[in-house]
């Protein structure tokens, strides 16, 4: 009713009308501070990174060299090694995030005792700053004085201190474990929210039909969560592929490059090797990878929205 009244009081005008054209500019004016801010903190640095990737930087002097940095990066085995490490790191982390996040969410959705306290407890790793969490783990895993070795030695699981961050296999496992520890709560939170939107009637009907727990999970829970899990996984990939903090603090990419994911290679190239042009080229290549996943995310969400409308 109120819409009708408004239409009656305000004569319909096209967007080409002078009044509305002015209103449209008012809209842009209101948006201007935000757009300027975003341009300053995102667009300009992005262009600067692109520009830097075409330069040979020597301290405060730079020379335009076209695509030479890209050629050098792509010819360097270190880049391909880092790409392989990144792919392994992201794959293991994301799969574990989703599986453990789903399991925890299912458990928390069932539990009625101390539900809020448990949710807060499981969220703690995600709430702690990554740098702080990584530093805590660094000391827990310390070979001589670390708590983990102390416990394992005490119960006789190991006979000598293990250098968790000192060999390629254990170092990769350690940083991936910490990444999993930190990333599971995010997926758990999303999945828990998704679980609570599944209509209880579907489970009730399945129970009447005599469905087992597994059948209910397979035919009700999973189909209802499918869209959410795909979106969460894609977001998680975008998130994990950019991560540097945990690896930067715990191993710096070592030992012998075993944990040197692309962001670590970027950092080491820029700040240890002082080759900013090459580092910017690595950054642009990394951004391209992230953009592919971002495009996937946008496509998935658009399809999801269209499904909802139907």
């Amino acid at each position: 009713m109120s819409n009708t009244t408004t239409t009656t009081n305000t004569p319909a005008r096209s967007w080409t009308g002078r009044g509305l054209a002015r209103e449209r500019w008012h809209g842009y004016l209101f948006l201007a501070p935000t757009l300027l801010f975003l341009a300053a903190v995102i667009v300009l640095p992005l262009f600067h990174a692109f520009w830097t990737s075409f330069q040979r930087i020597r301290g405060l002097n730079s020379t335009f060299i076209g695509f030479a940095n890209y050629v050098r990066v792509l010819e360097d085995e270190a880049f391909w090694h880092s790409l392989r490490v990144s792919l392994a790191f992201v794959s293991v982390s994301v799969v574990a995030h989703v599986l453990l996040g789903l399991l925890l969410a299912l458990a928390l959705n069932k539990i009625t005792f101390a539900r809020t306290a448990l949710r807060v407890l499981f969220l703690t790793p995600w709430m702690v700053a990554a740098a702080v969490g990584a530093t805590i783990w660094l000391w827990l895993l310390e070979p001589q004085f670390g708590v983990l070795n102390y416990i394992l030695l005490s119960v006789g699981i190991i006979s000598a201190p293990v250098a968790w961050l000192g060999t390629p296999g254990t170092a990769f496992a350690a940083v991936t474990t910490v990444e999993i520890w930190r990333g599971v709560p995010f997926i758990m939170l999303l999945t828990l929210a998704g679980l609570q939107t599944i209509p209880a009637e579907q489970y009730e009907a399945a129970e009447i039909d005599g469905a087992t727990s597994w059948q209910k999970f397979r035919h009700i829970t999973l189909p209802n969560l499918k869209y959410l899990l795909v979106v969460a996984s894609t977001l998680d990939i975008i998130n994990v592929v950019r991560h540097y903090d945990i690896i930067g603090i715990m191993t710096g990419g070592g030992p012998a490059g075993a944990t040197e994911v692309l962001p670590a290679l970027l950092y080491n190239t820029a700040f240890r090797a002082n080759r900013f042009g090459e580092a910017a080229a690595i950054g642009v290549l990394l951004l391209s990878m992230v953009l592919i996943f971002a495009a996937m995310y946008l496509r998935i969400t658009r399809v999801g929205q269209e499904d909802d409308r139907r």
Binding site: Q144, A163, G166, T167, T251, P255
Partner: peptide, 8 residues
């Protein structure tokens, strides 16, 4: 004769 974890 050297302590463990030399790479760290």
């Amino acid at each position: 004769v050297a302590s463990p974890a030399p790479t760290t």
